[in-house]
């Protein structure tokens, strides 16, 4: 009983760590993007300020589902983050860091948010949710195919074990071992994080930030927290799956930072796709590339 409690506490610690890590790195990244745009940029802890400011405000609610959805969203994401291994050997629930848990448990959070947004009664929120789900339909399939290849090669769907597999001498990181798949994964990751050109579902100037249109104050703050943890989960997934996991926490943070910053830099030079362009894009090249990669790797055995 005690060790289960301890595990859960560790899990909460992981989630908290993820939140702090991602929020800081996001702040730093705002500076990075600002530099790209020849600006000075905000303080590195600006994201924290934003979130706590939101939590301090007096918000409005549109009924119980509006609040319930937010709680479910944040709860689901915290729950998901608790499973995330930080290094390839450190995680809260040893042996249960199954890839599918992340993919699907994260969906509870998404569903909660979508539900809450639609519950607000604002059509723009529903449109945003529609776009978010459509985008999800677009990027998820190519990504899953690449991960399928990895799972098939390593014979395990545990993130830490996939990480360890890459650390064995002779095996290279999957980003290098499966180069085509790696590129697909990067594109899919940009879709997951809602970075340009795939930020169609936020589109502030078009649909007034989509799902978040009716949020203010604490609900928005909680969604921000949720967003940060989601990003933490998704980027960590990438690190574990494609960049050889992490032997220690420093390496993890470094890899994490590199991935996230690189994505931000890429995204800062793009415009925005229309929603059907997103779908068409992902179902054209990334999917073909992912299938090609899977075929080469699984049936021909060509893994670098």
């Amino acid at each position: 009983m005690i060790d289960i409690l301890l595990m859960i506490l560790t899990g909460i610690g992981v989630a908290l760590f993820g939140f702090v890590l991602q929020t800081s790195i996001a702040g730093v990244n705002r500076k990075v993007v600002a530099r790209v745009q020849k600006r000075y940029g905000p303080k590195w802890y600006q994201e924290f300020l934003d979130i706590f400011k939101l939590l301090s405000k007096r918000s409005v609610t549109h009924g119980w589902i509006f609040d319930f959805g937010v709680i479910m969203a944040l709860g689901g994401i915290i729950g998901t983050a608790m499973f995330m291994p930080l290094t390839s050997s450190f995680m809260a629930f040893d042996g249960y860091d199954n890839f599918f848990i992340f993919v699907y448990l994260i969906a509870v959070g998404m569903l909660g948010m979508a539900m809450s947004a639609s519950g607000s009664g604002n059509p723009l929120a529903s449109i945003g949710v529609m776009r978010a789900l459509t985008t999800m339909l677009a990027y998820e399939v190519p990504f899953m195919i690449v991960v399928l290849t990895i799972i098939k090669i390593t014979g395990t769907s545990s993130l830490s074990e996939i990480g360890l597999f890459q650390q064995v001498a002779g095996n290279s990181w999957f980003f290098i071992a499966l180069p085509i798949g790696g590129i697909v994964a990067v594109m899919a990751l940009m879709g997951m994080l809602g970075k340009k050109p795939f930020e169609t579902y936020i589109a502030p100037a078009e649909i007034a930030s989509g799902p978040m249109v009716e949020y203010g104050g604490k609900q928005l703050g909680m969604l921000f927290i949720m967003h940060e943890i989601t990003v933490f989960i998704e980027v960590s997934l990438f690190v574990h799956l494609f960049l050889g996991g992490a032997e220690n926490i420093v390496l993890f943070i470094v890899k994490y930072f590199v991935v996230y910053t690189a994505l931000n830099i890429i995204s800062s030079v793009y415009g925005r796709f229309k929603i059907d362009q997103v779908v068409l894009f992902f179902y054209k090249w990334p999917l073909i590339m992912a299938i090609t990669q899977a075929f080469i790797a699984i049936y021909l055995g060509w893994v670098i």
Binding site: I8, G11, I12, A15, L55, S56, K57, R58, S59, V60, T61, H62, G63, D67, V70, I71, M72, A73, L74, G75, G76, I77, I78, G79, T80, M82, F83, F93, L105, V108, S120, G121, N122, L124, A208, V213, E214, G217, K218, Q219, G221, M222, I225
Partner: peptide, 28 residues
């Protein structure tokens, strides 16, 4: 774990200032 997550979220929610209830038509 999902339950724990929801519990945490609920605690965060309940600790913060109470929201003002507005109608469904009062939207942006």
């Amino acid at each position: 774990v999902f339950g724990v997550g929801v519990l945490i979220a609920f605690i965060i929610f309940i600790l913060l200032k109470k929201s003002k209830k507005v109608g469904l038509m009062d939207t942006y």
